[in-house]
Structure formats: C-alpha cells, structure tokens
C-alpha cells in the first residue's frame, strides 16, 4: 500500500497577535508549524501501513527551512518526505496543482491523505482540488478509515449524520482532527529519522509551465472586536444580581 500525505507548513495561529493601533493581525515573524490536522493524517497513514504494509510519503510545499519541520513526521514513522519549493505566487489552485503533480511523480499511489482543512486558512479546498486534478474519487471529513487490501471503507462525519463510503484505490481522503491522537516520537525514533530521505524537488522538475493564480488576496483586515470588557467584582451574590440587572436593562428578558 502506498500512502501519500499532504502536510502543510502553516502559520501557527496561536502566535498571531493583533496590532492595537490598526486592529490588524501582525503576520511578520509568526512561526510556521505543520498544520494540526495534517499530523492526524500522518498518524492515520502510519496506522494503515502498520496494518496493510507499504510505504508512507509526506509531501509539503515550503522553503528549504521547512526541512526541520518535516523531520518530526519522519520520526513519527513516515518513510520518506518530499519538499517542493515555494512558488513565487500561490493560490489554492496552484498549491493543489503542484501537489497533484508531485503525487504523480511519487507515483503508484493508493491512498492520498489530507487534513479536512489547514489551521491558518481553513479553506478545505486543497484535498478535493487534488482529487479533481487527478480525477479520482474523494472522501472528505473522515472520522474512521478501514483499509483493506483492495478497498477502503470510510466514515464521513457530516455533523448531523455519518455517511459510510467504500472506494477502490486510488482515492483521496481528508481526515478530521478527531480521527486519532497523533503519536509523539521517542528519542530513539527521532535519532533514527535523521537517516530517512527528504527529497527536495523544484517546480521545474515537476514539468509544469508557469502557473498563474486564479484568486488573489487583495487585503488582510482585522476583525472588529469591540466588547465592553466589564468585569463585575464583589461577592458572588452581588455580582450575580448586578449581572441579572444589567441583562434586564439590555432587554434580554
């Protein structure tokens, strides 16, 4: 079984601060980390390999420095990693196109795993776009994956219902954060992973011409967050009464 996991290097949203003067987020210097849900995708890939045998390859688009961030995925148990250089301009379609070309180059894929969405953009687009470019079946929001030799059975979580889908290979599956708890590699695994290959591929090596964005970001604005921020102080009964009176004045009841 050959499993490819798309693991994004995303902005660590918990490190984003808001500039009090402009109300806009400060994006410069925000560290990049492997997107949360993508770690669950790597964990799921390893579990499938443990059951069915095969190989797990991760694919990431990012600058050369990203190598350090990919290593923990190898320590978790991925066999190889691919790092594709960052294009000058990117949008969802360019990212999906590059990833699908890289997946073709890795070749012989049975299952492609993505996160349901990335922590910074949370668009959920890239998985289904890759499946579209490769013209293969897709299953999104997977909460359970049961892989067998020739097919996979997946539970899609749609909040109000669960849809159980069966597919042959190749198939693209996007996973939810709830599908598993990603393992923490031990020291031994971390040391051993240093020997595992990280292939660095240029965009030219994927054999695609110039890609122009189909969507462009024209501005990043802050989110208005005007709140009264009144902290009521005193004994519990007093504050509770004060709050009840305030809510009455606000016309809540």
């Amino acid at each position: 079984m050959n499993i490819i996991v798309c693991a994004k290097l995303a902005a660590d949203v918990s490190e984003i601060t808001i500039d009090p003067a402009t109300g806009k987020p400060v994006l410069q210097g925000v560290p990049k980390i492997i997107s949360d849900i993508d770690k669950s995708a790597v964990e799921e890939a390893i579990r499938i390999r443990e059951k069915c045998g095969g190989k797990v390859t991760t694919v990431t688009i990012g600058p050369p420095e990203a190598k350090e961030k990919i290593k923990p995925l190898l320590a978790m148990g991925a066999d190889e990693a691919v790092l594709i250089s960052k294009p000058e301009k990117e949008d969802y379609s360019i990212v999906a196109k590059l990833l699908s070309e890289a997946i073709k180059k890795v070749g012989n894929y049975d299952i492609i795993l993505c996160g349901e969405a990335s922590i910074d953009l949370f668009s959920g687009q890239v998985g289904p776009q890759i499946a579209g470019y490769l013209n293969i079946p897709q299953v999104t929001y997977a909460q359970v994956i049961i892989a067998e030799e020739k097919k996979v059975i997946v539970e899609r979580n749609l909040s109000d219902k669960v849809v159980v889908i069966e597919s042959t290979f190749p198939v693209l599956i996007s996973v939810t954060k709830e599908i598993n708890k990603p393992r923490l590699p031990n020291l031994m695994q971390i040391m051993q992973s240093a020997k595992k290959p990280i292939h660095e591929w240029s965009i030219e090596s994927l054999g695609i011409g110039e890609l122009s964005p189909k969507v462009e970001v024209v501005g990043i604005d802050g989110v208005p967050t005007e709140r009264k921020n009144i902290i009521l102080e005193g004994e519990v009964e007093e504050t509770a009464t004060e709050l009840a009176e305030t809510l009455a004045k606000e016309g809540i009841f």
């Binding site: 949203v13 987020p25 922590i119 189909k214 969507v215 462009e216 970001v217 024209v218």
Partner: peptide, 14 residues
C-alpha cells in the same frame, strides 16, 4: 475569515 478568526482576507477572482 482566516487565521482561526483573527483576520478577514479580501480576495479577488482572476
């Protein structure tokens, strides 16, 4: 909405 709700991204189609 992007960055987990910290910002609004304005985007234009090309």
């Amino acid at each position: 909405i992007v960055f987990s709700g910290a910002a609004i991204s304005r985007q234009q189609f090309a």
